[in-house]
Each structure stands twice: as structure tokens, then as C-alpha cells.
Amino acid sequence: MILEMKHIKKSFDDLEVLKDINIGIKPGEIISIIGPSGSGKSTLLRCATGLETQDSGEIVYEDGAKFGLVFQNFNLFPHMSVLQNVMDAPVQVMKKDKETAKAEAMKWLDKMGLADRADAYPCQLSGGMQQRVAIARALAKDPDILFFDEPTSALDPELTGEVLKVIKSLADLHIAMVIVTHEMAFAKDISDEVIFMEKGVIVDRGTPDELFASDNPRTQEFLGRYNNI
């Protein structure tokens, strides 16, 4: 296991957001977490990445495993160019030399289809492009596991597709991915396992085929809301 989350509990004041969550992620595995707003999906990612501290339970990474996080709102650094956004952490944090970091950053930007926008600033790009820069920035730290916190929720519908497409293109890199998403077709298509969370508990889980054909009434009800659209 590259990451094991055991018995994770987390409350904000009186509100129990996570109630005894257990998830293990194998190297290269792709897990989608679906569920209604307020079900604790994002909080789980924030605990896994250290942005929040769980009240109890254990989060264990394999030795030396590195993680990255792609935010809903991108959180690019507005004062840095696209290229600087991607190569700054490798240079400043990982102490890579500038030429190496630049070459690698350009490789990731190319994979994201943004090599020609390397000198642009985030404010000059569409939301979809900004999110692809953010993905390149996360990849530049050579993560073993990459978390996506609703990566397309802040995007206009017509920009969602381009971001989902590049996330899908990462599957052959054998980086484990945990994706919180409301894009059901995407989750079904890309995942090894789909987890359905509601009110802080894992209600249902399985392969996409199992989960999307689940006879659990709550799963059916949740998925039904999407099918009606």
C-alpha cells in the first residue's frame, strides 16, 4: 500500500465530518470518491495531505512516498509565469538545478498541451488551462500519489472536458490517483475503485461496474439523481 488511512475521524465543532474512514491505496491505483456535498470527501483529502489534522486514526504513507494535490480553485501563484509556477518548487524545495527543473517542467506542460503558454501568467489563461497548469505543477514534484479535490467543479461546463481528458492521460504514468468528483461518467471510466461517501461514512464501494450497478438503496438514490439530469 502506498497510503493507508485507518479509522479516520474528524469533527468541526459539533459536526462529525468523518466517521471511521478506512481506505488503502495501492501503487498506481485510481480511486474516485463520489457523494453529495458535505459528505466529507474534501475533508478526507485535506486530512490525507496534511491540510487538516484528523482527530483520531492513522495516515501512513509508504516510506519516501510523495503526494501532490490539485485544488478545486487551482491556487496557482498569480505573480509567477506558468513555467515558474511549475518549476519553482522543484528548484526551491527539491533543490533541482534550474536547467533540469525547466526541462522537466516543459515536459509536463507539453503533456498538458500548454507548452506554448509557458511564459503566460495565470490571469491570462482560461480556467481549464489554469487547472492544467496546476496539474503540471503537482506532477513536477514526481508524486507517487496525486489527489484531486473536485478538479472541475470551478470550471464552466465546456472547459470540464479538457481537464478530465488530461487527468485520464495520466493513467499510463502509474501514479496513484484519488479523485473527488461529481463527474460520474468520468469516475466510472477511469477508476479501479469507486467509493461512495455520505454524511462522513463510506456507504458503498467497489469496482465501477459493481458500484454503478449496486443494489444499495442509498447508492441507487444518489446515482439516480445524476441519471435524471
Binding site: 491540510l51 503526494f67 491556487n75 518548487a89 505543477r137 514534484k141
Partner: peptide, 29 residues
């Protein structure tokens, strides 16, 4: 925004690096 600090934390910047490289240039403007 808090997201700037969070992005920096995830990328592994130290507190000082975050302030000097990420926050301060934006504050000056």
C-alpha cells in the same frame, strides 16, 4: 487567500519560503 498558503504547503515550501516567495510579492503589489 488561504489557498496560496495551502498550495505552498503541499508543494513543500518552508514557512519562510512561502512568505518570501509566494506571499510577499503579492502583498507588495
Amino acid at each position: 487567500p488561504r489557498g496560496q498558503y495551502e498550495a505552498a504547503q503541499i508543494l513543500g515550501y518552508t514557512k519562510n519560503q512561502t512568505f518570501i516567495r509566494i506571499i510577499l510579492p503579492q502583498v507588495v503589489k
